[in-house]
């Protein structure tokens, strides 16, 4: 039983490194044949994450700085958590049709809540006395954002992007359902790729997600201003989690 599982695991890994005939025959799958799928997967992931960042960060900064939209922030966070990503992706395909645009749109919607919430809370958690002192010294509103609020909330903002990236990498697997051939294809079509293809690709996606997590953890650490940096690496993440909790209870 255990040996059988190990065999399957090995076969799955072999699928990633060597191409083979498809189950029905006639087509090569696996190995280097996976590269276009990987490329498509990463493309939609990056588009989704970057778009979400470009939309959510400025909006959240604006709302948090002006002190408006606490309600909006908590709504976005809660809706984002409640709606299943597959529903978002399939729902919008009904309006936008099949293709990359639709998938990226869905992924962007999925990526917005963590980034928005973290940015909003990041700006809000900046010590009010520090902001008062900044105003009192004569910094303009924009200068307060760029010189005080933004640097101090960078760790949380990158924490949000990190969460979103991991979500999006996993969710891009749904691509084939809306006509985009991502790494989800071997998983959703075991009839073509075989059990080894399903398992192997699942492992690959998990590895990408973990790698992304690590890369962003590094970026998050590097983005933390020196004066507020702690040697404890778990802190920023805990802060991020607490931030989300707080936002949902606003």
């Amino acid at each position: 039983m255990i040996l059988g599982a190990l065999d399957q695991f090995q076969d799955g890994l072999r699928f990633l490194f060597e191409s083979r005939d498809s189950v029905a025959g006639g087509v090569q799958v696996g190995g280097s044949e996976l590269l276009p799928l990987l490329g498509e997967h990463m493309k939609v992931t990056l588009y989704g994450t970057v778009l979400a960042t470009l939309l959510a960060v400025p909006l959240a900064i604006f709302l948090a700085h002006t002190g408006r939209g606490a309600f909006a922030a908590s709504s976005v966070a809660n809706v984002g958590r409640a709606v299943p990503s597959i529903a978002v992706v399939l729902f919008f395909s009904a309006y936008l049709g099949f293709g990359v645009t639709n998938l990226v749109f869905g992924l962007t919607l999925l990526a917005i809540p963590p980034i928005f919430t973290n940015t909003f809370v990041g700006i809000r958690q900046v010590d009010t006395d520090v902001v008062d002192a900044a105003r009192g010294q004569g910094l303009s509103g924009l200068q307060i954002v760029t010189k005080v609020e933004l640097p101090l909330s960078l760790p949380l903002i990158f924490g949000g992007i990190r969460t979103s990236f991991v979500n999006v990498v996993a969710t891009a697997t749904l691509g084939p359902l809306v006509g985009v051939v991502t790494l989800g294809d071997p998983i959703l079509s075991p009839g073509v790729y075989g059990a080894a293809g399903q398992l192997g690709t699942a492992i690959l996606i998990a590895v990408i997600a973990v790698a992304g997590e690590l890369v962003f953890a590094g970026i998050q650490r590097a983005a933390t201003p020196k004066g507020i940096r702690r040697s404890d690496p778990g802190r920023a993440r805990r802060l991020g989690r607490r931030a989300q909790l707080r936002a949902s209870s606003v």
Binding site: D127, D129, V130, V131, D132, A133, A134, R135, G136, Q137, G138, K147, V148, P151, L152, P225, K226, G227, I228
Partner: peptide
């Protein structure tokens, strides 16, 4: 405000500077 010094009880130093 740039012409008026401003010091408060909570000090409000910029922690990242």
């Amino acid at each position: 405000r740039r012409d008026i010094g401003y010091a408060i009880q909570q000090i409000g130093l910029f922690p990242h500077q």
